[in-house]
Amino acid sequence: MPKIDPPKDTKRAEKLAAFDRLLTIMDELRLNCPWDKKQTTESLRHLTIEEVYELSDAIMEGAAEEVRKELGDLMLHLVFYAKIGEENAQFDITDVLNGICDKLIHRHPHIYSDTVADDEEAVKQNWEKIKLKEKGNVSVLGGVPKTLPALVKAMRIQEKARGVGFDWDDKTQVWEKVEEELGEFKAEFNIADGSEIDHEKAQDEFGDVLFSLINYSRFLDINAEEALERTNRKFIYRFQYLEQAAAADGKTLSEMTLEEMDYYWNEAKKGK
Rank of each mutant, 00 (worst) to 15 (best):
K3M: 09
D5Y: 03
K11F: 14
F19T: 07
T24H: 14
D27A: 08
E42M: 09
H46G: 05
T48K: 04
T48A: 09
S56M: 10
A58W: 06
E61R: 12
E65V: 04
V67D: 10
V67Q: 12
E70H: 03
L71H: 07
M75K: 12
L76N: 11
H77F: 15
Y81V: 13
I84W: 04
E86F: 13
F91G: 00
F91P: 10
I93Q: 02
D95M: 12
L97R: 04
N98S: 04
I105F: 04
H108L: 03
P109T: 03
Y112G: 00
D114K: 09
A117E: 05
E121I: 14
V123K: 15
Q125E: 14
I130E: 03
E134L: 13
N137E: 11
N137I: 08
G142P: 03
A150T: 04
L151T: 14
K177Y: 01
K177R: 03
K177H: 06
K177W: 01
G183A: 11
A187G: 11
N190Q: 08
K201Q: 14
A202R: 04
G207D: 10
D208C: 01
I214W: 05
N215Y: 09
F219Q: 10
D221I: 02
E225D: 15
E226K: 13
A227Y: 11
R230E: 11
R238W: 07
Q240I: 05
E243P: 01
Q244F: 02
A247M: 10
D249T: 01
T252H: 06
L253M: 06
E255A: 15
E255K: 11
L258Q: 10
L258M: 06
